[in-house]
């Protein structure tokens, strides 16, 4: 485990991102606050549509407008509030101080431009590298992300690359300017399992070497357990639980987190122990229930859950949870994941 640095790299306060669609208002991200220290890896977990990707895009200020808009909040990054920057100033942050890797390697690269041109572009924009020099640097970058014969493939086009290689190229592109923060939005979801592990290892090593902080967005709890220092669990646009990865796994507090854990097979678990999927449907953001959004699917609702939405409160050291009736541990430590019943 890395020593906790006290220096905050990123602090998000009360971020709200809404989408104004024809069907109605979607509060994709609602009142989200979190922080990130230098060199730290933060995992953001949740089902699809829970607002993880929108939070990431909000950090980069890449929310398509219309229909989306960051309604309020502050994003403090390297001592500046990104939401107050001009578009030009923001352009100097994107791809330079803060970079992002997307989910779909097959479509995230421009099919008509060479890999070299695309990977080297951040160097040309942010470090005023001359094109010929940028191409040489690009070859080195491709080697660093372990693309076989990287230097020779600078002139290749994306269709000549496999999915895994494209994602490696994306990583090279994102790390070209050694950013302080790398956001990886489901970087390996579209890839084979074997390649997934290689890529995550690579990303972990490269960010560690550069001292880059990493926000790893995924729905895969296994990935988070392995790579993240701290974890935010999101549900219906809100953070419902925040904890160190260790703590979250040993003692999940929010019924949703508990449910997520119970629905994932674990190697250390008795084979006879059945998986328990979470009941009900993922929430419809257009028609959220009153009170707690998870309450219709919750195994342990109480009176107030239907009336009022719970706020994040400190449950123990470095562990916050937004639940009126969180799972309790002192007597149940090491117990089965039978908390929902």
């Amino acid at each position: 485990m890395k020593p906790e640095s006290t220096e905050k790299l990123l602090e998000v306060r009360n971020l709200c991102t809404h989408f104004h669609t024809r069907a109605g208002l979607i509060r994709a991200v609602e009142d989200v606050s979190f922080e990130l220290a230098q060199g730290e890896t933060l995992g953001i977990v949740g089902e699809s549509g829970c607002g993880k990707s929108v939070s990431a895009l909000s950090l980069m200020r890449l929310i398509p407008n219309p229909p989306g808009r960051i309604m309020k909040g502050e994003i403090w990054f390297e001592g500046r509030d990104l939401l107050k920057l001009s578009e030009g100033e923001m352009g100097r942050v994107r791809g330079n101080r803060m970079a992002m890797i997307f989910q779909e390697p097959m479509t995230s690269l421009n099919p008509v431009l060479t890999i070299g041109r695309q990977v080297a572009e951040p160097l040309e924009i942010h470090q005023a590298a001359r094109p010929d020099k940028a191409q040489i640097l690009c070859g080195e970058l491709l080697e660093r992300v372990r693309i076989p014969g990287g230097r020779k493939r600078v002139k290749d086009y994306p269709h000549q690359f496999s999915g895994g290689m494209r994602q490696r190229a994306m990583i090279a592109m994102a790390l070209a300017c050694t950013p302080r923060l790398l956001i990886a939005d489901e970087p390996t979801t579209a890839l084979d399992v074997t390649i997934q592990a290689q890529l995550l290892e690579l990303m972990k090593n490269l960010t560690r070497d550069c001292g880059t902080s990493l926000i790893l967005i995924t729905h895969n709890l296994g990935i988070v357990a392995r790579y993240a220092d701290r974890v935010n669990v999101m549900y219906a646009g809100r953070i419902v639980e925040k904890a160190r990865a260790r703590d979250l796994y040993s003692r999940p507090r929010h019924p949703y987190t508990v449910g997520l854990m119970a629905s994932v097979p674990r190697l250390d678990q008795d084979v006879k122990c059945k998986l328990r999927p979470i009941q009900g449907q993922p929430p419809d953001l257009l028609q959220l229930p009153g009170g707690c959004a998870f309450q219709p699917r919750c195994g342990r609702p109480i009176e107030i859950c239907r009336i009022q939405s719970p706020l994040l409160t400190v449950a123990s050291e470095n562990h916050e949870v937004a639940c009126w009736n969180p799972a309790d541990y002192p007597k149940e430590i090491g117990g089965e994941h039978a908390l929902t019943s």
Binding site: L62, E87, G95, M100, F102, S108, L109
Partner: peptide, 16 residues
């Protein structure tokens, strides 16, 4: 397309 989002994420201006 996704690759336009990638280009924006690199810090290119809308014109670029």
């Amino acid at each position: 397309q996704d690759y336009i989002r990638t280009a924006r994420a690199k810090g290119l201006s809308e014109k670029a």
